[in-house]
Amino acid sequence: MQNPYEILGVKEGASKEEIKAAYREQVKKYHPDKFQDNPLYELAEEKLQEINEAYDYLMKNNGSGGSSYSTSSNQTGMNPQFMEIRKNIDRGNLPLAESMLNKMRDKNAEWFFLNGMISLKKGWYDNALSNVQTAISMDPSNMEYKNAMNSIMGAAGGYRTTAYGRGYNGAGSDPFCQALQCYCCADLCCDCI
């Protein structure tokens, strides 16, 4: 997840009241009902999910209003290397983050989670899903991992729905495509063509 403060548009250390107000504004702005029959519907849906995750994270981890995202974590005493890798992922410096991750010997839940986040940023949903599932199996109580899993599942589901609609069956109504399919099939079946 990106910095939740940035997602909601508030400063680090914001009070719970400020966070709630910013959350309500973002929900109004990106609610999918405003984008019915609009190509931006799926994007608004994803953005709303991201807003909800950021809000949940801040409300659970921002008890005093002074907690910092970059130093807070579900794991107390997080390895500083992992923190640096997170920063590089957030900045979009995936090659450096990946290089740092690959040099590490300790492949714990956080390692698999961060590897999954790198894959997700690259658009490799299956690899991201596999790594985050491994992280969850190693640390089943980590809500950040579970939220990431839900986000990946939602994004991959939208992709599959869209992609399947344009696949092989979509070509069935075009006579040229049908003729080409028959030709290819005949070519495979006999040596006469």
Results as ranks from 00 to 15, higher is better:
Met1Asn: 14
Gln2Asp: 08
Pro4Arg: 10
Pro4Tyr: 01
Ile7Gly: 06
Ile7Arg: 11
Gly9Cys: 05
Lys11Ala: 09
Lys11Cys: 08
Ala14Trp: 04
Lys16Leu: 01
Glu18Val: 10
Lys20Gly: 03
Ala22Pro: 01
Glu25Pro: 07
Val27Lys: 15
Lys29Ser: 10
Lys29Pro: 04
His31Cys: 09
Asp33Thr: 14
Gln36Pro: 09
Gln36Thr: 07
Asp37Cys: 02
Asn38Val: 01
Tyr41Val: 00
Glu45Asp: 14
Leu48Lys: 14
Glu53Pro: 12
Tyr55Cys: 03
Asp56Thr: 14
Tyr57Arg: 12
Met59Lys: 12
Asn61Cys: 01
Asn61Trp: 09
Asn62Arg: 12
Asn62Met: 01
Asn62Phe: 03
Ser64Ala: 05
Ser64Asn: 00
Ser67Asp: 10
Ser67Ala: 03
Asn74Trp: 01
Met78Ala: 08
Met78Val: 05
Gln81Phe: 01
Gln81Arg: 15
Met83Leu: 02
Glu84His: 10
Ile85Leu: 03
Arg86Lys: 11
Lys87Asn: 11
Lys87Gln: 14
Ile89Glu: 06
Ile89Arg: 13
Asp90Met: 05
Arg91Gly: 06
Arg91Thr: 09
Gly92Cys: 06
Leu94Met: 09
Ala97Gln: 00
Ser99Asp: 13
Lys103Gln: 06
Met104Pro: 05
Asp106His: 11
Asp106Gly: 06
Asn108Ser: 13
Glu110Tyr: 09
Met117Lys: 14
Ser119Gly: 07
Lys122Asn: 05
Gly123His: 08
Trp124Ala: 08
Tyr125Ile: 04
Leu129Gly: 12
Ser130Lys: 15
Asn131Glu: 05
Val132Leu: 03
Ala135His: 07
Ile136His: 07
Ser137His: 11
Ser137Cys: 04
Met138Arg: 15
Pro140His: 09
Pro140Cys: 02
Met143Pro: 06
Glu144Asn: 07
Glu144Trp: 00
Tyr145Ser: 02
Ala148Asn: 02
Ala148Leu: 01
Ala148Phe: 03
Met149Pro: 15
Met149Phe: 01
Met153Tyr: 12
Gly154Arg: 11
Gly157Phe: 06
Gly158Ile: 01
Tyr159Trp: 07
Thr161His: 11
Thr161Asp: 09
Thr161Gly: 12
Thr161Glu: 08
Thr162Phe: 03
Arg166Val: 03
Arg166Met: 07
Arg166Gln: 08
Gly167Trp: 07
Ala171Trp: 08
Ala171Gly: 09
Asp174Pro: 11
Gln181Tyr: 00
Tyr183Thr: 06
Asp187Lys: 15
Asp191Lys: 15
Asp191Tyr: 12
